[in-house]
Design a protein around this nucleic acid. Sequence first.
DNA 1: TGAATGTAGATAGCATGCTATTGAAATGGA
DNA 2: TCCATTTCAATAGCATGCTATCTACATTCA
Lengths: 143, 143
Amino acid sequence: MSDFKQSSAGFLANHMARLFASTLHRKIASLGIAPAQFMVLLELWQGDERTQADLTAALAVEQATMANTLARMERDGLIEKRPSQTDKRSKMICLTAKAEALQEAAIAAAAGVNDTALAGLTAKDRQQFLVLMARVIRNLQAG
Amino acid sequence: MSDFKQSSAGFLANHMARLFASTLHRKIASLGIAPAQFMVLLELWQGDERTQADLTAALAVEQATMANTLARMERDGLIEKRPSQTDKRSKMICLTAKAEALQEAAIAAAAGVNDTALAGLTAKDRQQFLVLMARVIRNLQAG
DNA sequence: TGAATGTAGATAGCATGCTATTGAAATGGA
DNA sequence: TCCATTTCAATAGCATGCTATCTACATTCA
C-alpha cells in the first residue's frame, strides 16, 4: 500500500506524459504552437488536405477535443477550414503558409525532446520501450 | 517524417497516459472519485495528516493544480482543510469518513487497471517497463 | 420516396494541468 | 527590531481532454 504509487504503471505513465508535454511545450512555445497543435501539424505536414474526422482518428482523441484544438489553431492562423465538396457536413483542414514554415524547426524540437527522454538508453532498450508502450495501449484499448 | 508520430515516445506516452486515466476514471467513477482525486487519497490513506505542500511534492504537480484538486475534493466531501497550529500559512489536509471508506474498493480498482494494462507481459518485462519509465522521467526532469 | 438511422461537427460543462500573480505569514540577517 | 526574502495557498487565465447533447446532412431500407 505504502508504495502503490511508486510502482504503479499508471502513475508513472501520467507523470512521464506530463513531462513530455511540458518539455515539448517549452521547446516549441517560441514557434507559437502548443503540443496538441503540433500533433495536428504533424499530420497535415504529410501533404494532403485532411478531413476533421480523419485527424480525429489519426490522433486518437475525441471529436470534441479535435474540434476545440482546431478552433484554437484557426484562431492562431495555423489552419483554414474549407467546406468539403462532396459532403456538406464535412470540413477540409488545410495549412496556412505560416504553419508550413514551422515544419522543420518544430520537428527538430520534438525529435530533441525524444532524444532527451531516451538519453542513455541503448537502441534495443529504446525499441523495447516503444514496443511495451504500444502493447500497453492495445491492452487498455481492449479492456 | 511520415511515421514520426508512431515511433515517437512522446506521442505513445501521451496516448498511453490518456488511456490509463480514462480506464481508471471508468472504474472508480461509481465511487464518486476522479483519477487525480484518487492519487491524493492514496497519499492520505497512508495515515498521517499531510500539509498541502507535502501532497503537492508527493504527486509531482504544481501548487495551483493541487489547490484546485483539493478544492474539488473538499466540495465533494472527501477531505477537510484545517489550519496548521504551527504555521498560519499552511493547511493540514485530512480525510473524511466517506473517503476513508473508499480505500479498499478504489485501490482494488486501480490495481485492476494496472493488471489490465500489463496483461501478457512477463514479470521481467513489467519490471523493465517501470524502470524505463522511471529513467525517462529522470531524463526529462534533468533536461 | 420518405422515414429511420447514422455521421460530421459545434457547443456546453467539467476535470486536470500549467504559468503568472497576489496576499499573507514566516524567516534570516543587518 | 525591522526589512528583504522566502514560502504557502488562492486565484485568474489558458490548453487539453472527456462526455453529453444538438443541428445539419447523408444513407438506408421499407
